[in-house]
Amino acid sequence: MRRYALPLIACLILAGLVLVGILGSRFTVYITMRVMILAIFALGYNLLLGRTGLLSFGHAAFFAGGSYGAALFFIHVNRHPLLCIAAGIALAIVLSVIIGFFCVRHTEIYFAMLTLAFGMMVFSLIWNMREITGGDDGLVGIARAPISLWLVSISLAKPSHYYFLVMAFFMVSLALVYVIRQSPLGLILSGIRENDKRIEFAGISLKNYRLAAFVISGGFAGLAGALATFLNSNTTPFSAHWTHSAEPVLVSLIGGLQTFMGPVVGSLIYVVLREVIERFTQNWMLWFGIILLIIIMGFRGGVVGSMVSLLGLKNRPDERSEGVSA
């Protein structure tokens, strides 16, 4: 059964997303885009947290790298959206290679603090280098030019058109992360999480493979950032702030750190719940904090992990449910 479950789920997701794109109201389309962008951020991030066991508080910097990379490319070089997005991802990857090079020397709390420091350095640069980044105003007026490929030109100006570009990137990210999780590299990263002292004695360079996970997740963060820039038509320095780095952590945790779909489900819950709660009260953080408490105290497998064990859908009877091992 499991053999067919994944293609089936993928088709269902795709069908659902296409339906939303065609039939959904403007608001639904906008919210779904936000879910998908956050999910791309979190999917990549969870390769680092859930898979490799490293807690980064600096990935907002790579999100911002993608965001500002795309925007700067748009302003100074070329307005083609795909090129802008590629530029954003490239900047995010360059940043994550540089920052990762230093950060992967440490683990646990020291890694978290180091990524926090580097992330905040990026934030302070964006904040203070007004001439380039627009400072606290960010860069504005990042319009969605049509995508021209050879003979055809597809307009993205309407949100419902841009939606399908985001959806395409989301599905590709989903597939990529799935493939990486099933690949030899995916197993090595699990090994690093499980026992980073032994992995070197298995002939694996701990630093290089940690860096690989760091850069891959940084690349996905960059993609998310670039897509967000075109969604909002602007950039904001707060996309680099550490509080923004907490978002993929929360989302992955809510969905389930050890599950593939966890970050996606978590993103959906995070964005939708926030919208719903904010309709009734100003205090969505209060409710969100309580949900977080409940998950940490009682459902550490996250929503997906808990559902899987509740429904007895585990593919291995002895698979972990406790999340990242201590």
Partner: peptide, 9 residues
Amino acid sequence: RAARLLSPL
């Protein structure tokens, strides 16, 4: 083959 990331295990 440990670094292969796009082919299944």
